[in-house]
């Protein structure tokens, strides 16, 4: 191998460049194909919502609607209280995220910069909460919430998801990295505890806070398990659970109404897709941090 290189340097140079070029070509080709594969279901969702029922049932599927049929969207809005679902999702997401943020920042401060007896043991308790998911505790939680009369209320929907141990954990790591001298500077300026949190810690850890907030927003919008347990009336159902109802309602009576079901699905994914595309920068930095640990 080495010998050939010595004897024919220009040819090797050429073939290496060619190999590299074909390599790049195939890298692009495979990457594009795979991206198409991953994005295809979302494309199919969108495109199916614009098809007529007849076209949906063709045995030779069409990858572009022959005629765009927009009827599915008004139909969904007329048959189900979609605005209510959207509002519920929105309201619940905003409330849980802000509570998670406020309580999370305070707790993260206490466990990173605070000083009180039993701090380490109490933090272990918070970490322990990560190991007890709602999928384990939902029965007693449900009974407790029912006992307080919170089934089918916003408070029942929001409160059990108001604090995230993950949130606290992530923020604590970031707060810990802030040098103590900044806090001292704040104290010299006469700031109290809240002042230091708001004016020193939060601005210094802004990227981390934005990351966890965006993830909390997306998780809130998509959350399913607890909202399904605690809501039974359309007045309090979020979009995520309503989707299941919408799909089973059609499966019960109608024929193949997947275009309408897909229309509902499209409506429900628009906010998260936009949020993700807008804030992907923050989510992706979150990853590199996770990988570094």
């Amino acid at each position: 191998m080495a010998q050939t290189t010595m004897n024919n340097p220009p040819k090797e140079f050429n073939s290496a460049r060619l190999r590299k070029k074909t390599g790049v070509f195939f890298q692009y080709l495979f990457a594009i194909l795979l991206t198409a594969f991953f994005i295809f279901p979302l494309y199919w969702m969108l495109i199916s919502s614009f098809k007529t029922t007849e076209e949906l049932l063709l045995s030779k599927p069409t990858f572009w609607p022959k005629t765009f049929n927009f009827d599915s969207y008004p139909y969904i809005f007329n048959s189900f209280p979609m605005w209510r679902f959207i509002f519920n999702s929105f309201f619940m997401t905003v409330c849980t995220t802000s509570l998670q943020l406020i309580i999370g920042v305070m707790a993260a401060y206490a466990f990173s910069k605070g000083d009180f007896p039993g701090k380490d043991i109490l933090f272990v308790l918070i970490l322990g909460a990560l190991m007890i998911p709602i999928q384990v505790t939902f029965i007693p939680t449900y009974i407790m919430v029912a006992h307080w009369g919170w089934i089918n209320t916003y408070i029942g929907l929001i409160l059990p998801e108001a604090v995230s141990a993950y949130f606290i954990f992530m923020l604590r790591q970031n707060f810990k990295a802030v040098d103590e001298s900044y806090l001292d500077a704040g104290r010299v300026d006469g700031m109290g505890r809240i002042g230091i949190i708001v004016h020193v810690l939060v601005p210094m850890c802004k990227p981390a806070i934005v990351t966890v907030t965006v993830i909390a927003l997306i998780n809130g919008w998509n959350s399913y398990f607890w909202p399904k347990m605690v809501t039974t009336s359309n007045d309090y159902r979020t979009l995520s659970i309503a989707l299941r109802e919408i799909s089973s309602a059609f499966a019960g009576l109608e024929i193949m109404n997947f275009n309408k079901i897909m229309a509902a699905a499209v409506i429900s994914v628009i906010p998260v897709v936009f949020l993700f595309l807008l804030c992907q920068r923050y989510i992706l930095t979150g990853f590199s941090k996770a990988a570094m640990k």
Partner: peptide, 17 residues
Amino acid sequence: TLVILPRYVTVSATTLV
């Protein structure tokens, strides 16, 4: 970005498709 997108899209919606 497009490859990672599915993780953030509502599960209720993507299971339907």
